[in-house]
Design a protein around this nucleic acid. Structure first.
Length: 555
RNA sequence: GCGCCCGUAGCUCAAUUGGACAGAGCGUCCGGCUACGGACCGGGAGGUUCGGGGUUCGAGUCCCUGCGGGCGUGCCA
């Protein structure tokens, strides 16, 4: 990769400057190399001289000139080195080096852009984890798109990633679910009473109750309420979970592990985790409850693990859950939570520390919510009345590709305005189609090229010399950025930045298409350009694959 | 009240963690199809980066302060 080579050149030059007595010995630290914003500033740039000048008590520009003058010429990699601005040293890559990316793409196929930046670290990404008490809403869709793309991009960057869905099949929410069904069931059979507080008022509960009546009649009518609730929970939550799984698969999100909260209890892990904390003096009894000393790890108050009723809190089972995760050997666990769980982060990290794991072993990504719009007007939604747009409805209307792309367009920490009409539109205002169109257009060109010219033997390095137009070089440079983009998205946990890269690449391709004809009478040039667009298509496939959006050959 | 996050073009967002003239998309205005897909392309206008101080070679980015917004602050999950 260009980066390492250039860093090497700089280190050598700095060493020589010192040994030749041009500069006093100076601690340079890691050499920072960055992509300048402006093209005139070259392909890579370092602020090394600005950084060390202060410590050398010299003018930064002077330092830059000395170092730049000692940088070894390497025409296979760097064509020009210059000092600019306050003391930046800018590097221009040689055209030959830039073109070589095409051979690398050819060689590595779908692996192109991957690296070992993650060093094989084992990472678990847990996301969605919706209570199986109702259909997924659009917010879940966003976490799904985010978690899945993050997992993909981290895998590509050399992490070993597992996707996990935590099933809250225990506790209050599930009871509320059962009670709600029970209430509707009784209602249908003419014994309606008061609807339970905290119950789910959505229409789907009535549908479930109706189905139970259709299938089983009044079989459960005379059971004691709690028994009926239990029965309904056991009957219905697996079905609900199944339909959640279907919805997610419908948008191409597949989990490696579905982890049950009930299992934690049945294996005694919750109790174990609690008593271990108590044994280690991390928890204490007060007022009949058991408290975890989270204040020792930065929390503002201690938190209850076991209520005075003897019942463990959700926090307790979450601790057991995270203990279990760490026990499975992950180096790092990433949880994606809705922004409303914001206040929970500190205490969970405190719990990690109390258990003896570093607080950085747990990383929490808070996802902001999704506001739905239709042609610029907000879509009314009310949790209270159960009037929500489900993820299924959204996928039905805009399609999985459009939905995933839109969910991923913005940073997870800013609220997303999702315009349904725009996501549906098959027009240039819709970036999904813009990128997919580039892929389809290339496919079409390649089909045409094959028909028009029977013999399209592989391009050779001497053919590639013909690639020199500005549009061609811009495209090649962009292809060469994939690996660092993937690394950046993975290490900074910003999968949404992949969409920006995809759009930039598509834009450069469309500009190239305008300026350069691929299929021409000049056979060498044609071979070179076919090779180029083939590489562009491959990279589009890789990026769309990471995002989880299809790459159609025709549209 | 206290804690965390945020405030960048008319709108939605970027800005390589302190770097060079703050960039894209949408919208708007002007222009471009006799050859590989016009679902495309080129160009213009649009900014005191919420206000005020500070730190330094250099601030949208860091510190202080004011204003405006979001979220959190349960023996709920």
């Amino acid at each position: 990769m260009a980066r390492e080579k250039i860093v090497g050149l700089i280190e050598d030059a700095l060493g020589r400057a010192v040994s030749e007595g041009l500069l006093s010995p100076v601690e340079a630290g890691t050499i920072e190399l960055e992509r300048p914003k402006r093209r005139e500033h070259g392909d890579w740039s370092t602020n090394l001289a600005l950084d060390v000048a202060g410590r050398l008590d010299m003018n930064p520009r002077e330092v830059a000139v000395i170092i730049a003058g000692l940088i070894a010429e390497d025409p296979d990699v760097v064509s020009k080195v210059e000092v600019a601005g306050p003391g930046f040293i800018n590097f221009h890559l040689s055209l030959a080096f830039i073109r070589n990316v095409l051979f690398e793409i050819e060689e590595r196929g779908l692996e192109f852009g991957s690296s070992d930046a993650g060093g094989g670290q084992q990472v678990q990404v847990e996301f969605v984890s919706a209570n199986p008490v109702g259909p997924l809403h659009v917010g879940h869709g966003r976490w799904a798109a985010l978690g899945d793309a993050l997992s993909s991009v981290m895998s590509h960057a050399g992490f070993l990633v597992e996707r996990e869905f935590y099933v809250n099949d225990y506790g209050t929410q599930l009871r509320n679910f059962g009670r709600s069904i029970s209430a509707r069931y009784l209602e249908l059979l003419g014994r309606g009473g008061e609807f339970p507080g905290g119950g789910y008022v959505g229409e789907y509960i009535k549908d479930i109750a109706r189905r139970i009546v259709d299938e089983c009649g009044d079989e459960f009518l005379d059971l004691p309420e709690e028994e009926r609730v239990d029965t309904f929970i056991d009957m219905e939550y697996p079905r609900m979970l199944e339909s959640i799984r279907d919805t997610l698969e419908g948008m191409g999100v597949v989990f490696d592990v579905w982890f049950s909260e009930r299992g934690l209890y049945s294996r005694g892990e919750v109790e174990e985790a609690i008593s271990a904390l108590e044994r280690d003096g991390k928890a204490y009894r007060e007022g009949g409850a058991l408290w975890l000393r989270t204040t020792e790890y930065g929390d503002e108050k201690d938190r209850v693990l076991v209520r005075s009723s003897g019942e463990p809190t959700y926090f307790a089972s979450d601790i057991a859950y995270h203990h279990d995760k760490m026990d499975r050997g992950f180096d790092k666990v990433i949880d994606i939570w809705g922004a409303d769980h914001h206040g929970y982060v500190t205490r969970m990290k405190a719990a990690m520390e109390a258990m003896g794991y570093g607080r950085e072993a747990l990383e929490v990504i808070l996802g902001q919510l999704v506001k739905l719009f239709r042609s610029g007007r907000p879509v009314a939604m009310s949790k209270r009345t159960g009037e929500i747009v489900t993820l299924d409805e959204l996928l039905e209307e805009v399609g999985a590709d459009g939905a995933r792309y839109f969910f991923l367009q913005r940073s997870h920490d800013s609220p997303l305005d999702f315009d349904i009409e725009l996501a549906k539109q098959e027009s240039p205002e819709n970036p999904v189609y813009y990128v997919q169109y580039a892929h389809a257009r290339i496919s079409s060109i390649l089909r045409y090229a094959r028909e028009a010219k029977a013999d399209l033997s592989e391009a050779l390095p001497e053919d590639l010399v013909l690639l020199e137009a500005e549009a061609e070089m811009d495209l090649l440079r962009k292809l060469g950025e994939l690996e660092e983009v993937v690394e950046f998205c993975a290490l900074r946990r910003v999968p949404h930045r992949l969409t920006g890269y995809a759009e930039e690449l598509a834009t450069l391709f469309h500009a190239f298409y305008r300026d350069c004809r691929v299929v021409t009478d000049d056979e060498r040039l044609m071979r070179a350009r076919v090779f180029l667009v083939h590489g562009v298509r491959q990279v589009l496939r890789i990026v769309l694959g990471l995002i989880g959006v299809s790459a159609p050959e025709q549209m």
